[in-house]
């Protein structure tokens, strides 16, 4: 018997020997509670002095709805994003969090049949006001996408400055700006010697940081991130999370993430979205610490403890 077992991998052996079925549930339960505690502790560790929102100064949404054709995808989201903070939007897939993010800089309207209602207010101005120059809006509210997408026809340096070219902005100290943005995105040291190389020659994580640098080069007030780490390995994810934390000192970051640990690690505020078959709604929002340690809504608790999603 011993001989036989020794041919099996040790981990497997342990599992087989020490796991009567009835016990496992209890353990799972324990793990769940542990998870809440751990997320809360993570959130507590990283919590900082949190800015209070002053109306009319920063970035907020009022009763935002979104439709795709007849499908009501998102309902009645009112959220405030205080300056110099990171807000994480979490929730199961299909809950409308990405749709919400895309209404924030008017990327939503690229989908045929899309419609919206409500207001998105930046510096006291509704960005959906008729007559608004949408390109200016997108300059102020930058975006980083799920998949790294540097422009393949441009070099690394050109990629960083591509926003200036695209928006036809004039700037004299381009070299300085390039270095500043790459530094803020945590990429400068890795690419400073090969700024002339093509963007595609970088690794996935580096490409994503290049995209962040590109978004920073037009000096946005808000940076939207749509699951920026979902296509990356853990190492790259860590680097990007550091970058996000550093960015929070100067701009508003709104990040959609599937990863609750990530939300706990990097955000100051967390909003929980959920759809129960109808349009997605914002169920609860609060400081990240609160959401992960003592959520007020039962559904939030169920989600962050892993009962569903």
């Amino acid at each position: 018997m011993v001989e036989i077992n020794s041919k099996i991998e040790p981990a497997q052996t342990n599992e087989i020997q020490s796991e009567p079925r009835s016990k496992s549930r209890q353990e799972n339960k324990m793990q769940e509670t542990n998870q809440v505690a751990s997320l809360a502790s993570v959130a507590a560790q990283t919590s900082r002095a949190i800015n209070k929102f002053t109306p009319g100064s920063g970035f907020e949404t009022k009763n935002v709805h979104a439709w795709f054709g007849k499908h009501h995808a998102l309902a009645d989201v009112s959220l405030e994003f205080p300056s110099n903070t990171v807000t994480a939007l979490i929730g199961p897939s299909g809950c409308g969090k990405t749709t919400f993010l895309r209404t924030l800089n008017r990327m939503h309207e690229f989908i045929p049949g899309a419609a919206m209602a409500g207001q998105v207010i930046l510096d006291g101005q509704d960005i959906y006001e008729p007559g608004t120059d949408v390109t200016k809006i997108r300059l102020k509210i930058g975006m980083v996408f799920q998949k790294p997408n540097p422009f393949p026809s441009m070099t690394i340096g050109e990629n960083v400055l591509s926003g200036l070219r695209l928006a036809q902005l004039k700037r004299s100290n381009k070299e300085e700006l390039m270095e500043e943005c790459l530094t803020r995105a945590g990429l400068w040291n890795e690419v400073k010697d090969r700024l002339g190389a093509h963007g595609g020659s970088l690794s996935g994580g580096q490409q994503q940081r290049l995209c962040i640098a590109r978004a920073l080069a037009v000096k946005p007030e808000v940076l939207l991130m749509d699951e920026p780490c979902s296509a990356l390995d853990p190492g790259s994810t860590l680097r990007i999370e550091e970058t996000i934390r550093q960015l929070a000192g100067s701009i508003i970051v709104v990040i959609v993430t599937h990863n609750m640990q990530q939300a706990a690690r990097i955000s100051d505020y967390t909003g929980f979205f959920l759809s129960d078959g109808g349009p997605g709604q914002l169920i609860e929002v609060g400081t990240t610490n609160e959401i992960f340690s003592q959520p007020k809504d039962k559904r939030t608790e169920d989600y962050i403890t892993g009962r569903f999603g």
């Binding site: 709805h65 309207e109 899309a114 409500g118």
Partner: peptide, 22 residues
């Protein structure tokens, strides 16, 4: 499963579309 009635008074709009004045 009972379906919830979603009563929102919001109407879908397309602010990016060209409006009547324009």
């Amino acid at each position: 499963m009972s379906t919830t009635n979603y009563l929102f008074d919001a109407r879908p709009t397309k602010p990016w579309k060209i409006n009547r004045q324009q």
